[in-house]
Design a protein around this nucleic acid. Sequence first.
DNA 1: CTTGGCACTCCACCTCGGTGAGTGCCAGGG
DNA 2: CCCTGGCACTCACCGAGGTGGAGTGCCAAG
Lengths: 343, 343
Amino acid sequence: MTTESRLDERKLDVLRAIVQDYVATREPVGSKALVERHNIGVSPATIRNEMAALEDEGYIHQPHTSAGRVPTDKGYRLFVDRLSQVKPLSGAEKRAIHSFLDGAVDLDDVVARTVRLLAQITQQVAVVQYPSLSRSAVRHVELVPLTPSRIMLVLITDTGRVEQRIVDCGGPVPEATLADVRARLNAEVGARRLNDVPTLLEGFAERFAAEDRTWIGVLVATLLDAVVEQREERLVMAGTANLARFRHDFPDTVYPVLEALEEQVVLLRLFGEAQSGLTVRIGHENAHEGLVGTSVVATGYGRGEKDVVAHLGVLGPTRMDYPGMMGAVTAVAAYVGRILAET
Amino acid sequence: MTTESRLDERKLDVLRAIVQDYVATREPVGSKALVERHNIGVSPATIRNEMAALEDEGYIHQPHTSAGRVPTDKGYRLFVDRLSQVKPLSGAEKRAIHSFLDGAVDLDDVVARTVRLLAQITQQVAVVQYPSLSRSAVRHVELVPLTPSRIMLVLITDTGRVEQRIVDCGGPVPEATLADVRARLNAEVGARRLNDVPTLLEGFAERFAAEDRTWIGVLVATLLDAVVEQREERLVMAGTANLARFRHDFPDTVYPVLEALEEQVVLLRLFGEAQSGLTVRIGHENAHEGLVGTSVVATGYGRGEKDVVAHLGVLGPTRMDYPGMMGAVTAVAAYVGRILAET
DNA sequence: CTTGGCACTCCACCTCGGTGAGTGCCAGGG
DNA sequence: CCCTGGCACTCACCGAGGTGGAGTGCCAAG
């Protein structure tokens, strides 16, 4: 049948071998070298025929006549989808995750350690997204008087995130009123999802005495602002130095890549389109000019299977060790999830 | 006299011209090109003699025979110390600072915007240190019950920084007791410098009922931990992509520089040794292997002249526009200081 | 379908002068 | 005493060949 003839078993073996060798050596792999390194029981000439077919189908590509073959993005895609499996971490790496992450004191620290860890074990650029506000729930809202007429509003979420805003009330606010507002605010939104907060607080100010409604309105508005804040889709990154080590893998320079990485928007989109599970995006699939030539391996993380609060992942040249990266990313995500669940 | 002969006026002019031309063109500057671009009223031959003297004294250096001259670190040092003055920002740049920084909502945001701004106007790598805890004062300590026996401790400083810790009390704590502790805690340390907090809280737990002393002891210990936390010497960085643009200025590669920049310790030391005023550190003066070849222009910032809470600065190739960098760094520091003073 | 052989292609590397910018030195002039 | 023009010298840079080797495609035979 056609599927059999077009993706015959040995042809896939050849593709797999090409990907592995090219990832290992960064040199176009020729038919002879291939039969030497892998014990396929056929001659170079046979391999050449297979290669010609693979090239016709767009899985590999020849930089120039009389050079070996290099996988195309399509070739890597097939490799990831069908020819490889996630490589579990070594014991040493698992232990490294434990010792590295266990000392974290708060959310900032967890995120900071995670990103450095990921960069270190993958030797790539690591990106970790802060647990998104919108998917978490309110743990507590605190109102702290700074001066008689100014209040600091502190929003604490169950992911451990803390947001703060200063509210100017326009005039002095008695401590008793403040305590009342604080209590009713917490009664209203405590333990509720942030997504629901805007609905819950509709008409909140009207329940108070007329003279207080103005500043309470401002207060609520500020709180809502903090809740929906887009900026809060924050990211941290580490391991950019690793890019320089792979500079031979980029057509001319690392510059466009570094540039793309500094644009928060680009990075957020990288994750925005990602599924909650393990996602691999290869080369041109990234749909950003600076990132053709790079692949992203990402996954969601959270306090449980279903509860994805953000994403994390690594970015490197398309010529990367996909099975290894996938293993590292999933393992780190799982461990971070466990830590989040504990706090 | 000897000083006159060793640093004669024209020789300094020549050095200044060499630095300026080299910074502008990145090419070793020869005697002929120099007389053409600057209207010094002498011939190339004369300049050659001056150059030979400057080279003897170690201010400039010849990459190879029959090439022009390049300033040495010592040459840049003299240029910065005696041959240049801080270049004020253009109106457009000042306006950019305003519009960029004015929208900040909280401390994190101020820091994030500042570092991006600095990277953008200097076209170098920008580094901003978070206002250090140790130099700021307590604004408020909040205790939020999460479960009957667990409390979230939130420390708010007058620089707008917020620290949080979770405290396990081992058993249920009545709300009334908690309120009492909160009130007395704030009475004790409110508006005091963080440095003084350990002393102020000595014996704090003893003032309460015996059955509460244990958990209050834990609480105080956690608070002190947050106060002295070293990790809090945090930094943010932006503009690493600019390094790639200057890759021709680095002997072989940007890699060691990126690597050095990823080590928090290295960066902290960069600032740690810096004065509160404007500091320029050139090439080997940085005393870090990866950073020979780079210069750092840094300054302290804070809510006033005397009140330096942290540092910020830029890092780039030694071949940088020192007067411009110095102007940008001081201007940004001043503006950030003003914003801090407002909140 | 596989295999060895063969002719061909093209990159990577090296060598080798030519060119030009820049220097150091020297002797003459103000 | 300092400046200047002249002159010989040095050396990086560049482009033009020339060579070797790896790899291919095709074909005829097994």
